[in-house]
Structure formats: structure tokens, C-alpha cells
């Protein structure tokens, strides 16, 4: 029984991290048609900001805020300078955001150095959950991811802003004729996506290390989740849970490499099985 509870919690917390990263990525990909190869670097910016905030003595919540803000600012700048020229072409977004990611990584390396930064755990220790001692921080992650998804889904589905965003996603030109300024909405959405990345960066910091090229390790799993989720933001949650379940259980019972390949096979099956109409977004 303990093993089961432990596994369930592990899967949920893995899914929590993965889904938060995938959320930002999925928003730009599905709502704006941007393949953002710099998403991992926005995470990195967030993580750095949080570490530096911690270093000058700010408490963790402020560090979290600093990470989100830093990534949002960089994201907004990137949108204004580059990304808004890429909406017409998902292919071009590959080159543009690839260049952006190199600029961010190398920029940080040159100015702040290559070494690992230490991001300390704001909630050390473990508490008992159904008789199993489980790290508090992991539980915080699960809660944070749940709240975050709730907020985003409410924003998209129950506010005028969300309606506008979905309208622009479905047909930017048409939305413009209805009086929606799609360029400003795109800025908002991209900045929000970068802020989410920053948040994810702050959250994963204490689980690993903070370094200029940290983003790459996270981004591919997130991409696979976005692929499996298809056109839906809500489906990111089951997709993340599916991936985490397969990865955790197969790692536990068989082998991590088999687990990784199994996840990729699922992604392939989904791509082959579910044909979707481009531009159609269900939330």
C-alpha cells in the first residue's frame, strides 16, 4: 500500500512539473502557432532571477515573483523585437526562437558565468501522507500546478480576455475585423507564456541545478506532452499524467530507457491516430 501511495504521489508531482512547463509551451504553440525553442531559456531566466533574489535575502515568495517577472519582461521584449514577426510561419519561429535561445544562453554565460547556481529548497523535509513520508516541496508542486491550471482555464473560458484570445487563435484576421487588437493580445499571451516558463524555472530550481543551458533537459518531455495533448489546453493535464505514469512505472518496473522510448511511441501513435484540423482550438 505504501508503495502505491508513494508511486501515485511521485507520478502526480512529476506530472505537476511537466504540465506547468508544457502549459506555457502549449499556449504559444496551440494558440499562436509558435514553436518556441526558447521556452527552456525563459525557465532558466526565471530560475536565475529567483536564485539572485534569494542571494540578496528576499524570501522565497518574492523570489518566485522575481522569477516570473524577469521571464515575463524578457518574454515581452522578445515578442516585440522578434516573435511578432514569426506568427505567419511556424517554420520561421523555429529559426527565430532557436537564435533567441542561443542569445539567452550565451548572454547569461558571458555575464553570469557557466557554473551551477544553488537553488535551495524553500520547504525542506517531509510530512506524512496516508502513512507515507513525502517531501513537502513535491506536495507544494502538485498544489501549485493544480491552482495554476485552474486559473488559466478560468481565464481562458470565463473571462472576456479569454474569449478574445480564443478568437484570435481561431482566426486573427477575423478577430481584427471584430475590433480585437490581435497584436496586443499576442503580446499578452506570449508574455504570459514566458511568465509561466519563469514560474516553472523557479519551481524546478530546487529539484535540480540552475545553469545557463538547463532548459534543454526539460523542454523535450514538455514538447512530447504538448504533442500528446493535441489542440487542447485541458488535455495537457491527462497527457502529463499519462507521460509521468508511463515514465515512472516503466522506470520502476523495467528500465528508464525503455520508459523514454515508450513515451515517444505513445506520441507517435497519438500523432498518427488523431488527425486534427489546424487552427481549431478547444479549451
Amino acid at each position: 500500500m505504501d508503495v502505491v501511495i508513494n508511486e501515485v504521489l511521485s507520478i502526480l508531482s512529476s506530472a505537476a512539473i511537466a504540465s506547468v512547463i508544457a502549459l506555457g509551451l502549449g499556449i504559444t504553440f496551440r494558440l499562436m502557432g509558435i514553436i518556441n525553442l526558447a521556452h527552456g531559456e525563459f525557465m532558466m531566466i526565471g530560475a536565475y532571477a529567483a536564485v539572485y533574489a534569494g542571494a540578496i535575502g528576499l524570501p522565497w515568495p518574492l523570489g518566485l515573483l522575481a522569477g516570473v517577472l524577469a521571464a515575463a519582461v524578457v518574454g515581452a521584449l522578445a515578442e516585440v523585437l522578434i516573435v511578432r514577426w514569426l506568427y505567419s510561419s511556424p517554420e520561421l519561429s523555429i529559426l527565430g526562437t532557436y537564435g533567441l535561445s542561443i542569445v539567452l544562453i550565451q548572454g547569461v554565460q558571458v555575464t553570469l558565468g557557466k557554473g551551477y547556481l544553488y537553488s535551495s529548497n524553500p520547504f525542506p523535509g517531509a510530512i506524512e501522507v496516508f502513512g507515507v513520508a513525502y517531501p513537502i516541496y513535491r506536495l507544494v508542486l502538485i498544489g501549485a500546478a493544480a491552482v495554476l491550471f485552474l486559473i488559466i482555464l478560468l481565464l481562458l473560458n470565463a473571462t472576456p480576455l479569454g474569449t478574445k484570445i480564443r478568437a484570435v487563435a481561431a482566426d486573427g484576421k477575423l478577430a481584427e475585423t471584430l475590433g480585437i487588437r490581435s497584436s496586443r493580445l499576442n503580446l499578452v499571451v506570449f508574455t504570459a507564456s514566458a511568465a509561466l516558463a519563469g514560474l516553472a524555472g523557479v519551481l524546478v530550481g530546487p529539484l535540480g541545478n540552475v545553469r545557463p543551458d538547463m532548459g534543454a533537459d526539460y523542454i523535450f518531455t514538455a514538447f512530447v506532452i504538448v504533442i500528446i495533448a493535441g489542440n487542447s489546453i485541458v488535455r495537457l493535464i491527462p497527457a502529463a499524467i499519462l507521460v509521468s505514469t508511463v515514465q515512472n512505472l516503466m522506470t520502476f518496473w523495467i528500465d528508464p530507457m525503455v520508459a523514454k522510448i515508450a513515451v515517444l511511441v505513445i506520441a507517435l501513435l497519438v500523432l498518427q491516430g488523431l488527425r486534427r484540423t489546424p487552427g481549431e482550438v478547444t479549451v
Binding site: 508513494n6 511521485s10 512539473i17 529539484l207 534543454a216 515512472n248 528508464p256
Partner: peptide, 13 residues
């Protein structure tokens, strides 16, 4: 575990 692993929960279990 593969190089570049970020989540070690299954192994820790």
C-alpha cells in the same frame, strides 16, 4: 538513467 534526466522519482522509489 538516461543522460539529461531531470526527474529521479522512480529511481528514488
Amino acid at each position: 538513467v538516461p543522460l539529461g534526466t531531470t526527474d529521479f522519482q522512480a529511481v528514488i522509489s
